[in-house]
Design a protein around this nucleic acid. Structure first.
Lengths: 280, 280
DNA sequence: CCATCTTTGTGCACGCGTTCACAAAGACAT
DNA sequence: ATGTCTTTGTGAACGCGTGCACAAAGATGG
């Protein structure tokens, strides 16, 4: 699960709630499956089960698009597939550029789900001159010098950033300057963009950390962790070039359980230590 | 952004709202950056800016963890890093298995952010016998026959599924049966799991579709699309082996704009046409 | 043409999440 | 000590999203 939109809090673009928009692709996928099995109609109950949501929610979602169902029968699969596709803008062709062709960028380029949903990889772009010309997924990688040219010539409006964190903002700025208005960001950084530009973020590390939290809650409740030494002047663990001005955060403000600041993990670079490739 | 949790609607595990948990990794990342630059303290305003959120929200989030700030000064960076790490369960080691070593699986295996956050890749697993033994990211790939054994011997509780959609549920079932209670799913399928098992989903295709929706809204409003032929008996476009019982969804229930069911895209397999690799 | 049965579409209530705005707490200077 | 200034922590209001439950719509059979 990519971590929510970055900008635009209440996007309610034309009466369609953001939460509904986020579920439409889910319904579309389920419907496409039914369509291929030549199922003519589905009830909200069946479709909801296939999409893994509540049937009332599904009906309400569809009601935002219009009254496309038939009472006593259900929804016409083909018709609904078309309506949702159109609503999502999938009836037109969306040229996409992928910037940063490392492990992840290459995986994305090879991803079949692109083409099958109206998205066309217009170009692969990388800053490494050694990559230039080398084909990935049948598409020759182009050097980032040509970024602006590529975006403009192909009328690209959606960009995918799969660079290391350090390069992401710069790439983002160039993409935006070149005319791109939607960005899917895989780099572990908060991107700053002007109004009117949409950013969505996919962050593997965050997903895992959220899982770890719940996992701890499940297994935990009996793992008391370390004893509760107050947060007195955290001795930096060698790694950071601290000039020993020692933070010393006042006194421990009555936390409910243990703490031990110095007991951190080995501590490496936060995010840029990745092989110039896989951010997330 | 990975698409939200699948199960467990109101997880409020111990008073900490789910939305807050989802932001903690974000704060942690920003704080780690500050820590490396030996910044001793931050105000909620500064940290919020770095994490890309509202400062009031950040303060409220932290208030769920306890009162870790000092009024008039701000938060002690090192102390907060530790507190959040502990809260997220990052002070312990989390062995992880990745199942499905295609393009994406390999990219994930190479991802540096794993190790740097307490996650350790315990094993890579693939169903292809030809992959067995071949090292990826320095770790030998093991055959899926050994899945249960691997999970049990290493005490793995978190599994990552990067298989094609068709194999995902089966892999999921085996992981769960072997004792895994948290799953990060990259396959474009709705996974069914028993209670007590957490599933989070990352779906690239969905993210792109959401972007396309907003993109259409931005550029659109002037692209009238195709004319509005009523949804009369959608003629299947050759592909599907329809037995011509023609759906025919009643009459068009007064939609506000055009529609044209038969005008769909080429139509390929929905999700499984991917090279046995990159789902999302 | 009427009765029955299925399934949609939605009014309504509830709870979570967000944001404002401010009182209280503490640092710091005098 | 006392006053001022900064910044936290949170009470309260608001809005969005969810799910229940039901009336209305239409299909279907007699």
């Amino acid at each position: 699960m990519a971590t929510g939109r970055t900008h635009r809090p209440a996007t309610r673009s034309r009466g369609i709630p953001e939460a509904t928009v986020a579920r439409l692709p889910l319904y579309l996928r389920a419907l496409t499956g039914l369509s291929e099995r030549s199922v003519p109609t589905v009830s909200s109950e069946e479709l909801a089960a296939a999409a893994g949501v509540n049937s009332a929610k599904l009906r309400k979602d569809f009601s935002y698009l219009g009254s496309y169902g038939t009472r006593g029968v259900g929804y016409d699969v083909e018709y609904l597939v078309y309506q949702i596709s159109r609503e999502l803008g999938l009836t037109q062709d969306w040229p996409v550029v992928i910037v940063g062709i490392g492990n992840l960028g290459a995986a994305l380029a090879n991803y079949g789900g692109f083409a099958s949903r109206g998205f066309r990889v217009a170009a692969l772009i990388d800053a490494d001159p050694a990559m230039a010309g080398r084909p990935v997924a049948g598409i020759p990688v182009r050097h980032s010098d040509q970024l602006e040219e590529i975006v403009r010539d192909n009328g690209v409006s959606i960009g995918v950033i799969a660079t290391p964190a350090g390069a992401a903002q710069q790439v983002c700025d160039r993409l935006v300057a070149a005319g791109i208005t939607s960005i899917l960001n895989f780099a572990p950084t908060v991107l700053t963009v002007p109004d009117g530009v949409d950013v969505r973020k996919v962050d593997l590390s965050i997903e895992l950390q959220i899982l770890a939290f719940h996992e701890q809650r499940k297994a935990g409740e009996d793992v008391p962790d370390v004893p509760p030494p107050p947060p007195t002047t955290v001795a930096q663990d060698g790694a950071a070039p601290a000039d020993d001005e020692a933070p010393a955060p006042a006194q421990a403000p009555a936390a409910d359980d243990g703490q031990a600041p110095a007991a951190r993990r080995d501590r490496k670079g936060p995010d840029d230590e990745l092989p110039a490739v896989m951010p997330a």
